[in-house]
Amino acid sequence: MAQVTVPVARPGSHRLRRARSRVPIWHMLWVVLGALFFLVPIYSVVEFSLQGILPGQNVFHWYLTVFDDPNFRSAFWLSVQISLETVAASLVLMVPTVFWVHLRLPGLRPVMDLVSVLPFVVPPIVLIVGLAPFIKSLSIWLFVRPEVLSLIYVVFALPFMYRALDAGLRAIDLQTLTEAAESLGASLPRTLVRVIIPNLRAAIIGGSLLAVAISMGEFTVASLMGFNTFSVYTFDIGMSTAYEGVALTFVSFLLVWGIMLALYLLGRGGAGAAAVAITDEKK
C-alpha cells in the first residue's frame, strides 16, 4: 500500500518565516524619513491653523471663517470650473491626436515628444507675456473670460496629458484592436470611442488628475490676468491673515485630494482590468 507523507509544519516555523520576511531596519528608516518629509509640513499647517484663537472661539475658528467667506466659494468654484474645462479641452484635443499619431503616423512620435515638453522649457511668466497680447488681439471677449485660463492651462497640462496617453497607448496593442474593430465594420471614430478610450481609462484618469492639480494650483497666469481663482484668493488671504491663510491652505489640500480621489474612483474597474488583459502572457 502506498504511503503518503504529509509535510508537517515544525513548531516555530511561522516564526522563522516572520523573521525572514521582516523588513531590515534601514529600509524602514528610509520609509519613515520619506513619510516625515511629507507629514511634518502638513502637521505644521494643521497645528498652526488651530492657533491664534481668542478665548471662547471655536477651535476651528479660522476654518469657519474661510467657509463663511463668499469670496472663497466663488474663487473655489471658478477654479473647479476652469479645471474641468481644462481637462475636457485637453482630452478632446489630445486623445484623437495621440491615437492618430500612434496608429498612422508613428514617425511623428519623436516630434510629439519634443513638443510636449516645451511648456516645461518656457516659464509661465514668459508664456503669458507672449500669449496675452495675442489672445487680446484675437478676441477681447475671450480675453476677459475665465475660459481663457482653461486654454492656457491646456498648454501647461500638455506634457502630463501627452505622457499619460502615450504610455496608455503603448500598453495596448493599438494596431490589432483597431484592425479587429474595423474588420467587424466599425469606423475609426467608433473604434476610438467604443474600443480604444475604454481601454485608456487609467491613462485618461491619470492625465486628468495632473491637469486638475495644475489648474487648481496655478497662480502666475491667473494673477497676471486678473482672475480671482482659488490660488490667487489663497495668496491674498495669506497676505492679510496668516492663520486664515494657513487654514485655507489645508482646506485646499483636502479639496484637491477629494477631487483627485473622485476622479480616481471614477477610473477604477475597467481601466486596470483592460491593461492587465492586454499585457497578459499566453496562457
Partner: peptide, 13 residues
Amino acid sequence: MGMVFQAYSLFPN
C-alpha cells in the same frame, strides 16, 4: 470579411 489575428485581439473592456 471576418478576421482572426495572431495577437489576442479581444476588446479587453
